[in-house]
Design a protein around this nucleic acid. Structure first.
Lengths: 151, 151
DNA sequence: TAAGATTGAGTCCTCAATCTTC
DNA sequence: GAAGATTGAGGACTCAATCTTA
């Protein structure tokens, strides 16, 4: 394996390691508030809060998650009173999902916790490093999106 | 939410999005060679190939994965003839896992595929950007490790 | 008693089949 | 027939309990 190959291989190992570590870390923090929700339900809730009302298929596409996952998570969030569902009057197949007041408050609490964790992890980075990392991460996501759509 | 808060929130969303996209992409590529193996089994195999013989508990710690996962994956890899297990003569509780010839060849094929994908995704990045991203990713992993061990 | 490892139960995700509405 | 959404089956991971050996 060549020098350049080696760099990509190492980056790949870092990416895999990050996913395992990050997933495990977030796992433990999932249900602190006793809502009994799925691991990823909060991600769906956050998406609804930040990006506004959406139908389930749009949520699935926007989050890159299977529609069946969204369907179950939204049902759980609805039962917990964190989102509300209204039938789209223009298209009775579709539902529109919006966050309730409680959903928005919970999301804000989770977001603050999350930012606190991230601050601690990136404490000794320079602002430039943090900005550059965020930029490159976003660019990688863009490349992944393009790669997906190219198939 | 303040300006700095906002930056961390956005970075968090990018990280989450990356994990979902990356996981889904890798999912589809898991079993091209018909070994019928678990999603993460190839990661374990790669770890054994690159880092040499190890006992299961060391693999679990090194990969940041639950021991039960390693146990099942190693069993599957052994059944597929990709790794071999020998009892540690000095400690009969422990097994030592080594990759077989077939395991090393398969890992090399997967690695080449993987590097090809990564090359395509990072095609239009400058070498400096790729190096900086790998460096920061590694640093984040280090911070996650420290955070884990601090608890 | 602790460490290495395995196994079983429960949960979440993926994929395919199904239902309703366009 | 296609799109929005739901549901069921199977697989993978987490956690806890168990077994063996140090």
């Amino acid at each position: 394996m060549g020098q350049a190959d080696d760099e990509y291989t190492m980056l790949g190992r870092e990416l895999s390691m990050f996913i395992r570590r990050w997933t495990r870390l977030r796992e433990r923090r999932t249900d602190q508030y006793g809502y009994g929700l799925d691991r990823a339900a909060f991600a769906v809730l956050a998406h609804v809060v930040f990006d506004g009302a959406a139908r389930l298929s749009a949520l699935a596409a926007g989050m890159c998650v299977d529609l069946s996952v969204i369907s179950r998570q939204v049902a759980a969030l609805e039962a917990a009173g964190l989102v509300a569902r209204t039938r789209d009057p223009a298209d009775r197949r579709a539902s529109l999902i919006v966050a309730t007041e409680a959903g928005m408050e919970l999301t804000e609490r989770k977001r603050e916790q999350f930012v606190t964790l991230l601050r601690k992890l990136l404490d000794d980075w320079t602002p430039d490093e943090r900005a550059e990392f965020a930029r490159l991460m976003g660019r990688l996501n863009g490349a992944l999106t393009a790669h997906d759509e190219g198939k």
